[in-house]
Design a protein around this nucleic acid. Sequence first.
DNA 1: ACGTTTGCTGAAAGCGCTTTCATAAGAAGA
DNA 2: TCTTCTTATGAAAGCGCTTTCAGCAAACGT
Lengths: 334, 334
Amino acid sequence: MRVKLSDVARDAGVSAATVSRAIAQPELLSSETLARVRASAQRLGYLPDGAARALASGRSMTIGAIVPTLDSAIFARALQAMQATLAQSGYLLLVASHEASPAAETQAVRALLGRGVDGLMLVGAERAPETTALLRASGLPVVLTWCGDGHFTAVTIDNAMAGRLAAEHLISLGHRRIGMIVGHLQFNDRQRARLAGARLALEEAGLSLPDPLVVEQSLTLAGGRAGCAMLLDLDDRPTALIGGIDLFAIGCLEEAHARGMAVPDDLSVVGIDGLDMSAHVSPGLTTVHVPTGRIGNLAAQTLIAMVAHRPVQQETLLPVELVVRRSSQAHIAL
Amino acid sequence: MRVKLSDVARDAGVSAATVSRAIAQPELLSSETLARVRASAQRLGYLPDGAARALASGRSMTIGAIVPTLDSAIFARALQAMQATLAQSGYLLLVASHEASPAAETQAVRALLGRGVDGLMLVGAERAPETTALLRASGLPVVLTWCGDGHFTAVTIDNAMAGRLAAEHLISLGHRRIGMIVGHLQFNDRQRARLAGARLALEEAGLSLPDPLVVEQSLTLAGGRAGCAMLLDLDDRPTALIGGIDLFAIGCLEEAHARGMAVPDDLSVVGIDGLDMSAHVSPGLTTVHVPTGRIGNLAAQTLIAMVAHRPVQQETLLPVELVVRRSSQAHIAL
DNA sequence: ACGTTTGCTGAAAGCGCTTTCATAAGAAGA
DNA sequence: TCTTCTTATGAAAGCGCTTTCAGCAAACGT
């Protein structure tokens, strides 16, 4: 049915080994043999069988990625960047998502490991012990992203610093009562770290971020609006809000607008992520920029290097940076 | 090194065939044999080798998807939906993107075909003839999305109708001069169809959508803003704008706001897509809703059915629907 | 009681490729 | 000229699984 390597070999009048080499190590062949094989392959429309190659060589030229969800601007961008980088080296991306379920993540790891991926990208450092055991036992190159665990190779950002920068910015603006909307903290070490960073900054300034001023929401714009609504309905409402992700902050902008409150006059808002969109909303969103695309690029590069047994940096910490726009301003105490 | 099927077989005191059956067709085994094999597999931490399974069985339990980019709310959502549906049947998603390059798409198809995917999802009906030839020659289940070509199985929406609904809505509101921002039309049949639909509706109403009122932009919020700026800078500026994607329309909202123009008082704006975000921006965006997630779900279901040789509908046309919000209102002629 | 079916299991032949090892033919050195 | 390297190629042994095809019991039918 399908053209196989032996067909090409017969057509070109060479052995199967030679055809195989024409694909993988062309420099070993004489130029005329190579040309002949290539011509045959071309003419017959030969496409190597990946499964057979993977079985025989032990490499699948496939990298796995497991993210909470693809349906997020953040992970989508990181994966797009990964995919683009991987493609340049002939790798393909096998993706799975776990929707914030550790058990689903374990399943996904198992599925990807079974598919013979050459390396694996995961988000965050927190996971079921079983998953970690699986990963270690596999001996496969693994790169953690956003958060590292000190053991696996990682491409990270300082989430706590991101939270801190957001908080310190507001503190320096004179805000004393600050609220924060975060994603569900369970199985989300990025959000926990951002919250912890903000809280610490507040405490160092002699302020605090008490539980009533922190609301957990699902990671959507609607979640941001709802969280904002809860915070603004408090008796002693905050004068400034931090969104654990930009989407939350944008939700705050919308909710404030819907209530007839002016941002930044009546409420300051700061996000964390640095979505493209954040520069374009009104007012422009002050945010802590995270190099999402670079996380993806570097994760891919690191994985490729590890597969090739090249030395890699154990943990690459990418910088986050406060970008001040219109959504935050000095708080005038009454 | 790694535990293999024969290790499990030896440990359980059965043949390799029996272990294989324990995985793929457990109903063929006596319950005690099955239990014994499972216990051994569990204890040894056996994970089947996907490459070997794929080679021996001819099925990889992997579905390929090639999209223009992952970094788009639309495709990200569709892929997330696909992935979720596929995962339920034990399939994994192998993704590639082509960034609006037909040649890159061909490459991607080749790469995925080579990886032995069991089926392939593609976006749109327009592609290099070589790609189509490759697809046909492979004989693999293929599902086109958003647009069909009358040959391959497809899960589509009526893009022309979407454009028409947007235009007719504005016409009915009394707008006579309407502009449209579309993505680069080359290699994007979805945008072409939406434009054509809008144009036709206008012409049927005795109006027109002349070239100067159509601007092509890259598919980002910034593109939408830029397109809006161009249209508003026209001598005879339009009173209403259609965004070929919601992101464009949201860009229009921002640009209008930045210019001190009120939407919908000074300008009506309608999008196409129905992003979650569109319901939350201010003013709420009138848009033609597209069931993006369902496209992904159905593409996955269709592919799974095709792999199993179950009959499938040749083309599934999903409905689009106008959702009227605050961004559009009647035009008062001066 | 004797063929016949049914249920469960094993032997073994691949699936299409990679890769080691061996070999043959030149090139180079002595 | 004869040995010693190189260089280019082929033969063949798998990679770890699936899947006929057989075989052997036990259960069935008459």
